[in-house]
Design a protein around this nucleic acid. Structure first.
Lengths: 343, 343
DNA sequence: CTGTTAGCGCTTTCAT
DNA sequence: ATGAAAGCGCTAACAG
């Protein structure tokens, strides 16, 4: 069907070897020969067969993306990350493969799957801290970039935003608006980011000398429903709260709805800050103040780091720490206004 | 590094051929031999090298996804579709590759890219009607499934929901609530679905004998901003309108905001129906009544059809027409209520 | 039932 | 500077 290197050799009158070298830009081919070969290749519309190349070179110009968490996958979060990965991968003439594996049994299993398919490295997203094989990741002899879980090894690293700082920015913002009683709805403890965001919240609370109780923190699970529950619980137990820092936009929307259902005006009586800056954050009412993560950049840098590792076995992988920024919108406002007209 | 078929042959004491046959489940291998070979393979932790397999069999256990439209890519729409594709692909032990190509020059170019990488077929999403190479797609000798553009050929087909029916459902719903003056904000004409949704709207309007003018239809571009403009324009020109059918959720949200900014109460004064049922549709206020597309199923069926085509060259590809359903929410209500208190 | 031989399309020593 | 030969890991006739 498609032209092979043999066809090019035949047409140009050179050997397969020389054609290969010419096409791959080796220096030991005369300019004239190269030109002729190029022409022949052009005429035949020749493109090298990557599969054959791969078999002999063992070079794996492909990376895999494992998305272990179906819920997280189904939001814009991952879409932007994929877009970033695609763009970066394209630059390096790599391929991007997607894997659906809901649950990885072992790290070995994944690496096997990759090796078998000529994949040089993988990005893993949605890993929970309680995953049994998590501890194996750093030791593994296969280029790995993990999303949002700190993994460091000779061939493994991770990307994340500075979640501690993000949480602090949220609290700083609220404090600057005069809030002092600030509750938090966190994600589940299986996510590393939950711990980080909590740490940031606590540090900021302490730094500002705010009053604080154990009961100011509610552990949700990133679902909208848990945001709802969190808001209800927190305000029932701590009616003095004037602001809520919520560890994800989806939960924040749940909280927003619950607060409004309870008759609180947002932001007049309660301010809410989310995390992520997802698609819908700007569409809810009031528009959600949130901490924005640059997911596109996230994807690009994750891919870049991985490709770097694949290309250079001696390269020491670097943890990528992205900035995150506060996006002030309508769900936060100065403390202490009077009650607005709800409904 | 990894064990090859030769290692298995050596350990088991059989020839490479026999090992290959045993492992591939051919019938001409004695049970005893197979057992021994299996054991040896197990012991060596052997997994066949797909790249080598591919080179010789020319079997391409992989499909590609081309997402030509970056905007569409960045929403939940495509994420769910990808999730569906991943699941389907996994069942068939295929791989899924993603391509970022923003703009394809020719169909040939794409096919070349695929063939070169051992990809047996592709799903193409985000094709505009004015794409020059669109007409080539049906003729192409490469399995293709196009999303939301009617393409039919011996090796090409498409998946879509019945957009005409979807639009009709939207109008029927509004009519059942008593609306008779119904405007429409459409997407841009580069999208096939725009034409279909318009057709459905017009048919329904005619079927119900509703009053209609040219000026009842506004051509947007699927952006939120165009939804805003559409709402403003339509109601300025046609103040008698009591409902708007909007060809995408994003535009619908824009329309919602604009209407509210103009002092209209939704749904008390104006009802709005969107299309897609995206993530945020349920989060806006009021929650958006919309026409739901089952994108996960969409992805699964697209992949299934494609894999079918790849596996059987004589298979005549079938157009997949998915149902779409009306999801009634808060943005639609009976016509003719008095003006509510807008904030 | 099993092994021998060839070859997929390409790169890479090693000669010349 | 160019070519012959070998081989990547695997499958597929074709014999026996």
């Amino acid at each position: 069907m498609a032209a092979t290197i043999k066809d090019v050799a035949r047409l140009s009158g050179f050997s397969v070897t020389t054609v290969s070298r010419a096409l791959n830009g080796h220096s030991d081919v005369s300019e004239e020969t190269r030109k002729k070969i190029m022409e022949a290749a052009q005429a035949l519309n020749y493109v090298p067969n990557r599969v054959a190349q791969q078999l002999v070179t063992k070079r794996a110009n492909a990376i895999g993306l494992y998305s272990l968490d179906r819920e997280t996958f189904q939001n814009q979060f991952i879409t932007l990350m994929i877009a970033g990965m695609m763009d970066e991968v394209t630059i390096h003439d790599f391929n991007l493969l997607l894997f659906a594996t809901q649950r990885l049994q072992t790290a070995e299993e994944m690496i096997m799957q990759c090796r078998q398919r000529g994949i040089g490295g993988a990005i893993i997203s949605g890993v929970r801290l309680d995953e049994a094989w998590l501890g194996d990741l750093p030791k593994v002899d296969f280029p790995l970039v993990v999303v949002d879980v700190p993994v460091q090894g000779p061939r493994a690293t991770y990307v994340s935003v500075d979640n501690v700082l993000g949480a602090q920015k949220a609290i700083d913002h609220l404090v600057s608006l005069g809030h002092r009683q600030i509750g938090m709805i966190n994600g589940h403890s299986g996510a590393w980011v939950s711990h980080q965001r909590l740490a940031g919240y606590q540090q900021a609370v302490r730094a500002h000398g705010l009053p604080w109780k154990e009961s100011y923190v509610f552990e949700g699970d990133f679902s909208k429903e848990s945001g709802r529950k969190g808001a209800e619980h927190l305000l029932k137990v701590n009616p003095e709260l004037t602001a809520l820092f919520v560890a994800s936009d989806l939960m924040a929307v749940g909280a927003l709805e619950q607060l409004q259902a309870m008759g609180y005006a947002v932001p007049e009586q309660i301010s809410v800050v989310g995390f992520d800056d997802q698609d819908f954050a700007i569409h809810v009412s009031p528009p959600l103040t949130t901490i924005r993560q640059e997911m596109y950049t996230f994807g690009r840098l994750a891919a870049r780091e991985l490709i770097q590792m694949i290309g250079d076995p001696s390269y020491i992988p670097q943890h990528v720490d992205l900035p995150c920024t506060l996006v002030p919108r309508g769900s936060t406002g100065p403390v202490g206004r009077t009650r607005g007209c709800s409904s």
